[in-house]
């Protein structure tokens, strides 16, 4: 049996599919159409209903493999890897896409080893090579200084993780036909060595900077921890979250989960506002693919301005309160209109 078809790994939480699951369908549909092959999604969970799985079909999947079992409620890599390897060996997909989330970046490397697949991390572009039909995977490397395009000439499947928010989610369209295939979890695939014994949300509420549409980030230019208050204020007006440069985190002005950049998180929000961030190459690597970038800095030569769509050169301690005041007004207007 030869390898055929494109698969996406659809992540879910509390019975609901994540947005990134639909982004992967945008990617997968394009590839499947170019290859004239089938597009399937794989859900591994304990509580995703068929009705919820139908949403993937409405958004472009031809098939959904739905594996629900109470032992699969928490992501334990060994169990999920066993499920995936089993299904890959049975169905032999040609391409498998996962999200470059903490889950995808743990599970796919584990699986790729076992099925001897080529795997490329954190892709921002995917295409099909015309002559060969190989998957072309483009990813940033060396702190975003280069874009490397990679392919897997001989091994199948070809696997990739895709950066969340690097493409729009596929829209759900009524009337699309597709098949949901319920798969019983074979208890022999349960590993059982690792156990999840607890979970706590961070003490702060706004640390999920990866999924946020708006990130307001502060850097060394803020000069002290207390000044993050005005960053938080701006984030509130914009329904966003607070990000930070490495400098700000190392000086203990804010905690590590807020850190954007190579040793922190990569974010791709609709709006990124960098305040007092000089724009070290590692920081730029973590945010420069944001849709809109605003920079506020007193140094006109700061590298952050190179990636900005709009930059304000000046004293941030004066400008930021002024901006916050205006944003507060805009909010008021919005309330009245509603």
């Amino acid at each position: 049996m030869s390898y055929s078809g494109v698969w996406t790994l659809a992540e879910a939480k509390d019975g609901k599919l994540k947005r990134v699951a639909f982004e992967l369908l945008t990617r997968g549909r394009k590839l499947a159409d170019k290859l004239d092959e089938e597009l399937a999604s794989l859900i591994i969970s304990n509580d995703v209903s068929e009705e919820e799985a139908e949403r993937l079909i409405a958004a472009g999947a031809d098939k959904v493999y739905l594996v629900n079992d109470k032992k699969l409620g928490n992501f334990i890599v060994e169990n999920y890897s066993n499920v995936m390897v089993d299904l890959i060996e049975k169905h032999k997909p040609e391409i498998i896409l996962g999200a470059a989330t903490t889950l995808g970046r743990t599970l796919l490397p584990h699986v790729a080893i076992r099925v001897e697949a080529g795997l490329t991390a954190d892709c921002t572009e995917l295409d099909i090579e015309e002559e060969t039909g190989n998957l072309l995977q483009t990813r940033p490397a060396i702190g975003g200084n280069i874009l490397a395009t990679i392919h897997t000439p001989k091994h199948r499947p070809q696997m990739a993780t895709v950066r969340p928010k690097s493409t729009a989610p596929a829209e759900e369209v009524g009337g699309r036909e597709g098949e949901i295939i319920n798969i019983d979890f074979d208890s022999e695939l349960y590993d059982g060595r690792v156990e999840r014994v607890g979970f706590r949300t961070s003490e702060e509420e706004d640390v999920n900077i990866v999924d946020a549409d708006v990130v307001v980030a502060g850097g060394k230019g803020l000069k002290k921890a207390e000044n993050f208050a005005m960053i938080k204020e701006m984030a509130q007006y914009l329904d966003g979250v607070v990000g930070a440069s490495r400098d700000a985190v190392e000086m203990d002005w804010i905690t590590y989960p807020h850190q954007v950049g190579l040793s922190g998180k990569t974010v791709t929000p609709k709006l990124y506002i960098a305040i007092g961030v000089s724009g070290a190459i590692q920081h730029l690597a973590g945010m420069k693919t944001s849709d809109n970038i605003v920079a506020i800095n007193e140094d006109p030569d700061a590298d952050i301005f190179k990636v900005a769509d709009i930059g304000l050169i000046g004293n941030l301690f004066e400008l930021v309160p002024m901006i916050n005041e205006r944003l507060a007004q805009e909010k008021e207007v919005e309330k009245v209109e509603v």
Binding site: G118, T149, H151, H155
Partner: peptide, 17 residues
């Protein structure tokens, strides 16, 4: 399994205002 087929330099500046 993987091979690099091309290396590009991404556009660094956005030429913002």
């Amino acid at each position: 399994p993987t091979r690099v087929v091309n290396i590009d330099r991404p556009k660094v500046t956005r030429g913002g205002k």
